[in-house]
Design a protein around this nucleic acid. Sequence first.
DNA 1: CGGTATCCCAGGCGATACTG
DNA 2: CAGTATCGCCTGGGATACCG
Lengths: 122, 122
Amino acid sequence: MKCEKVTKCRLESVVDIIGSKWNLMIIWHLRTSTLRFSELQNRMCGINSKTITKHLRDLENEAIISRTVYPEVPPRVEYALTEQGKEILPIIDEMLIWGGKFRHPPDGIAGCEPEGVIATTE
Amino acid sequence: MKCEKVTKCRLESVVDIIGSKWNLMIIWHLRTSTLRFSELQNRMCGINSKTITKHLRDLENEAIISRTVYPEVPPRVEYALTEQGKEILPIIDEMLIWGGKFRHPPDGIAGCEPEGVIATTE
DNA sequence: CGGTATCCCAGGCGATACTG
DNA sequence: CAGTATCGCCTGGGATACCG
């Protein structure tokens, strides 16, 4: 049957991007400000660098985020949402609305917040 | 560091559900009508039965879809969106809006449609 | 600091075959 | 028809170590 990648489903290209937990989180964390590599890594509960790098590259290739290198010592690299990237936020909002309605009380995305840092339950 | 699954991110529980290409597609296909196992399978470009079964079970456990068995011969099983499930559609809409804007012309989700069946490009 | 390289395992998913 | 069982590949992603 002929229904290869080509026509499979238009949803796919979108799911490829936001269908990943990591990608979503990166986008979410960048919603308010640009962040450095290590800042992102820390906010994302110690995701290992290989994984975060891969996702950052993917998002960069998709033009969802931008990567700016400051040629300093020590090196500094900042990530930010592009215009396309910012327009993904409404999707995340919808997701949070749903989640708040049916899964968790709408206490924001605590645990991911820079402010709340890690509200350890322990 | 203490930031286990518990507090990781509220987004996660939502991503677990709609972060899967297959789950999204199932929900999308059920948006207008209930469908039988084989109908779903065919619409989803021949996804194999093991995979679709797993995702159907997952969605059922999450109360996103309902499963109704008709004790007939031959057996008939119908899947439908629950109320919770229907409320996921806005999220998908947002995704399609974004996809239409930045990835593909907004020609719907051709290739997934019962009507258009598989608009083979070849 | 911001990565890359390597190793390795668990899980996703396709193919195929079989069953109530 | 609507699955379950088995096999086997490939990717995702954690741990660790090293580099410019």
